[in-house]
Amino acid sequence: MTSTTPATETVVVVAVFTAAPGKLDALRSALVEAIPGVHAEAGCELYAIHDAPDDQIYMLEKWTSVDLLDAHGHGPAVARLQELTAGLTVAPPQVLRMTPIPAGTAEQGLL
């Protein structure tokens, strides 16, 4: 069974960055520097980073639509992020797009 996400539906993204050996602090700093440019983009509701085990940083994102997320992916803020993180990771980030499933209260059941 195949499904597609409507272009107007909220989308949540988790991106996992794995730092190259000895580069975790530099990767963290690069991501912090890149975030204000993303926060200024249309459709960005959440774009936050979190430390995780094994020299990983998780980025949690929420976008008002797939179209605006796609525009972000091809825009100058992502180009800047890629420039800042070049050589700081062991591989490109792993990116997972998800569609929220409302459950429970609106405050606790949705990102």
Rank of each mutant, 00 (worst) to 15 (best):
E83T: 01
V38K: 03
G22E: 06
A86N: 09
T99I: 02
E61K: 03
M59N: 14
L24T: 02
V12T: 08
A7C: 05
D54L: 09
G109C: 07
L69K: 05
A103L: 05
P100A: 01
T8D: 14
H74W: 12
G104A: 01
E41W: 07
K23S: 13
V16P: 00
D25E: 14
L24N: 00
G37R: 04
S3L: 13
A86G: 07
I35N: 08
A7I: 04
P92W: 01
M59D: 14
D51G: 15
T10Q: 14
L110Y: 00
V11C: 13
A52E: 15
V32S: 09
A77N: 14
H39R: 13
G22P: 10
T105H: 00
G37A: 08
G73A: 15
I49P: 13
A20M: 09
E107S: 02
T89S: 10
A20L: 10
L31T: 01
P76V: 08
T2I: 02
G73R: 09
V11G: 11
V32Q: 12
T2P: 09
A71E: 15
V12G: 05
A40T: 02
D55E: 14
K62V: 10
P21F: 06
A30C: 07
V13C: 13
L69M: 15
L68H: 14
V32C: 03
T5Q: 11
G37E: 11
T18W: 04
V90M: 04
V11T: 05
S29N: 12
G87Q: 03
S3C: 09
V32I: 08
G87N: 04
E45Y: 08
L60A: 15
A106Y: 00
P53E: 08
T5Y: 01
F17R: 01
G87W: 03
P36T: 04
K62G: 13
V78T: 02
M98Q: 04
S3Y: 12
G109N: 07
A91S: 13
A91R: 06
P102I: 03
V16I: 04
A26S: 12
D67F: 06
L27S: 05
T18F: 05
V13N: 10
V11Y: 05
Q56Y: 11
G73K: 08
P36Y: 03
T85W: 12
H72T: 03
E41I: 03
I57S: 10
H39A: 10
T4Y: 12
L111I: 06
L88S: 05
L24H: 11
V90H: 01
A103D: 00
H72I: 02
T5F: 05
V11E: 11
D54G: 12
H72Q: 09
Q56T: 08
K62N: 13
H72M: 10
H72C: 11
